[in-house]
Write a protein that binds this DNA or RNA. Sequence first.
DNA 1: ATAGAGATTGCCT
DNA 2: GGCAATCTCTATA
Length: 185
Amino acid sequence: MAHFFDFLRQPPLSAAPQILGAHLVHGELICRIVEVEAYCSADDPGSHAHRGPTPRNQVMFGRHGLSYVYLNYGIHWLLNIVVDEPGTPGALLIRAAEPLRGFPPHVSLKGPGRLGKALAINREHNALDLLHPESPLRLEPGTPPSQPPLITTRIGLAPGKGEDLPYRFIHPDRAHLASHWPPKG
DNA sequence: ATAGAGATTGCCT
DNA sequence: GGCAATCTCTATA
């Protein structure tokens, strides 16, 4: 049966613009995805999967729609959506969202670390099926942007790790909610 | 075995 | 602007 999120089977660069506007739900918390980065298989030097599977990244090799949660800099829990076909590691890093319901006043979901904290994401949320209607952490259809996404380079990558590739996608109507935008200043 | 870098953020000067 | 916090993986021995 056809599923609304079947496009997540596509490679990261195809899936990334289509996830913008979707709703991310964790219990009573609901937010709208406004910024993602694509991490593209073993050829992408910026991807955790660049050097093959490890205990940390093995879920990236699994089915589309799974969560990939990992601890960055020993402190921040970052949330990805696994995309592409099983065996081909791809992921979308969720970098920013717009709070819609259930968050405290003035909360910031701008930046992957802050987003993980606000959504109370931790290692228990790794490898969950985000497409299952009864999953505590899941995706739900939202309002897709009517304009093409804004596209620019990924954040935080060292030189030689694909830092110049246009792999970051921003909701065109919510650019003020994205991290590091405008790109130059 | 040990050291250093990393998909970040907040606090200090 | 500088840097500490602190876990996982990679490189070197």
